[in-house]
Amino acid sequence: MKDYLSLLIVVCLLTGCEQARFNDDITKAYGLPDRSAEYQDLITRDPKNLSEDELYNRVLTLWDTPYRELNLPTSAGTTHIIISGPADGETLILLHGMNADSTMWYPNVKALSKRYRVYAIDDILGPGKSKLDQAEDSIETVIDWYFEIFDTLKLEKTILVGASQGGWIATNLALSKPERFHKLILLSPAQTLTWLEPSVDILSNLLFAINPQRDGLRNNLATLSSNVDGIDQLYIDQFFRTITTASTSPLLMDMKPFDDKQLAALTMPVLFLVGDDDLFNNQDSVDRAIKIMPCVQAEIISDSGHFISVDQAELVNEKIVEFVATKQNQHLTTCKKII
């Protein structure tokens, strides 16, 4: 108990005691305030009358696994992280997509947290609870910021999981300091293996971004998801608020596919999953990954769009867990070459 109280003091100093939020079981065990009723109340309220943070907390009622939130001070600003899973589990770092935040992992976090220590980080340049405190907003700033987080939390030899823009950022991180990462998992990464091809869906997304209207939201989601009805309404409400209020990502113009030399330098085991109706990837993406990456498992997941971690959550969760559980020497036996 004494050790726990010491840890709690450290957490309070880093984040503010009100920012350390625990699951009901931990709340009962240590007498911390039970705030679950507060979050449940958010579900019944009109989303139009909720703040961005309240909409965020509303989606966290779907988390369905023990977790806590940390607001970590960094040189770039305040970093918001949701932490779950066993403290001695292998570390998984989740990087969300553009126009999203860490709550997008609600269909995945329970399965991943059973065995692994999961850190879902809100991008400092995107929506969510992380707050940028400086004018610099380049990819170099983002890379330095992530490694500052990893150093502060003493996260070594971790597994990076990136979706959409998060996959592009994860690839940049893995190329920057490959020795820091054990494995790399890319879920429908945007502008990473191939260029985005013009299409009716792309045009539809652009038009919706210019003038987002609630009655056009379902059609917009249908360009990203093969199973819109499978997306929880709490997340849809938050997603709509985000795309109507968030600024365009400052990294958007920097995002371009990596060249052959860069992809060949990713010698750690890589899991590359894309949907068969993915806005940003296709068979060409998979073929290029298999041809160039030294140690890649690349697959197309049927009946899924760009929101692959939602459309086929159970299957994607299984593939991630299986991939992470595979021993390093077993991966090496299937690699084309070791550089």
Rank of each mutant, 00 (worst) to 15 (best):
M1C: 06
K2N: 14
D3R: 15
L7A: 15
V10M: 10
V11W: 10
T15N: 01
N23Q: 06
N23P: 04
D24T: 14
D25F: 08
K28I: 07
G31Y: 04
L32A: 10
D34L: 08
Y39A: 00
I43R: 00
R45N: 00
R45T: 00
K48I: 01
R58I: 00
V59M: 01
D64P: 11
T65Q: 08
E69R: 09
L70C: 06
L72K: 03
T74P: 02
S75F: 07
H80N: 13
I81H: 02
I81T: 08
G89A: 01
M98T: 14
M98N: 15
N99L: 14
A100N: 11
S102P: 03
S102M: 10
M104L: 12
V109E: 00
K110W: 00
K114L: 11
V118G: 09
A120S: 06
A120C: 05
D122C: 00
I124S: 00
I124C: 00
K129C: 03
A135K: 11
D137T: 12
E140T: 11
T141S: 04
V142K: 01
E148V: 08
E148D: 08
D151P: 04
T152V: 10
L153R: 13
Q165V: 12
W168N: 03
N172Q: 15
K183V: 04
I185D: 07
L186D: 01
S188D: 12
A190W: 02
L196N: 08
D201H: 10
L203N: 09
N205W: 08
I210W: 10
R214T: 06
R214Q: 13
D215K: 12
D215S: 07
L217D: 03
L224T: 03
Q233M: 09
Q233F: 11
F240R: 03
R241A: 13
R241T: 07
I243G: 00
T245F: 08
T248E: 04
S249C: 08
L251M: 10
L252F: 14
D254W: 01
P257R: 11
Q262C: 05
A264C: 08
A265K: 13
L266V: 13
T267N: 11
P269V: 02
V270G: 01
L271H: 02
L271W: 04
F272W: 06
L273I: 12
V274F: 06
P294V: 06
A298I: 07
I300K: 13
I301C: 13
S302D: 09
D303T: 08
S304L: 07
H306R: 07
H306M: 10
H306P: 04
F307I: 14
V310A: 15
D311E: 11
A313G: 05
N317I: 09
E318V: 05
E322M: 12
A325Y: 09
T326H: 11
K327H: 14
K327G: 07
Q328D: 13
H331V: 03
T333V: 15
I338C: 08
